[in-house]
């Protein structure tokens, strides 16, 4: 059902532009990884704190507020580079299990990050029980690691 959409994506100039160059795909991929490092650092900073690890002498809300800008920057870099990567090989991705795992886990991770996790991380420290914070931190790490591993695995299919 979605195949016609992926076929249409293949016709877009951006993907064709990327394919037309030997260097563009690897360079965009590298920047995608730089975004991952930034996203990883800013997400793990808060998630480890939710687990009671890392910068445990600071309030979760303080870390979450400070990390937010960099998490959004990392996400923006990943989306802006991810789209041309996708458009350069949509049919291959349509038949890639790793891609489908990534593209279903990603919206879940995003929704989780901007609803439950944001509420728990920015809440007054008194309100969030330790158990709930730990659960949110662990879930967030699990979701993002799944997205990253599935993303890397696309290259092996």
């Amino acid at each position: 059902m979605l195949l016609p959409f992926f076929e249409w994506c293949e016709t877009l100039w951006l993907g064709q532009f990327v394919i037309g160059s030997n260097w563009l795909f690897p360079v965009i991929e590298s920047v995608h990884l730089l975004g991952l490092a930034l996203l990883g650092g800013s997400v793990l900073l808060v998630d480890l704190r939710l687990l009671g690890l890392g910068l445990k002498d600071r309030a979760v809300s303080e870390l979450a507020l400070d990390a937010r800008r960099w998490m959004l920057t990392g996400l923006a870099i990943m989306v802006v580079t991810g789209i041309p990567l996708f458009l350069s090989e949509p049919i291959k991705l349509y038949y890639s299990t790793a891609f489908w795992i990534k593209i279903t886990t990603l919206p879940i991770a995003l929704a989780f990050a901007f609803t439950v996790r944001a509420r728990v991380a920015l809440a007054d420290p008194v309100r969030g029980t330790a158990r709930r914070q730990q659960l949110v931190g662990a879930l967030s790490i699990a979701l993002w690691v799944t997205v990253a591993v599935a993303g890397r695995w696309i290259g092996f299919s």
């Binding site: 490092a37 650092g41 960099w70 890397r152």
Partner: peptide
């Protein structure tokens, strides 16, 4: 095994370069 090792390299990058970046920032 090869993809697992490669993926672990990338996940460790999130932690290592991620935190190095936080410290640098």
């Amino acid at each position: 095994m090869y993809p697992i090792v490669e993926s672990t390299h990338v996940v460790a990058l999130m932690l290592f370069v991620g935190f190095a970046t936080i410290l640098d920032l």
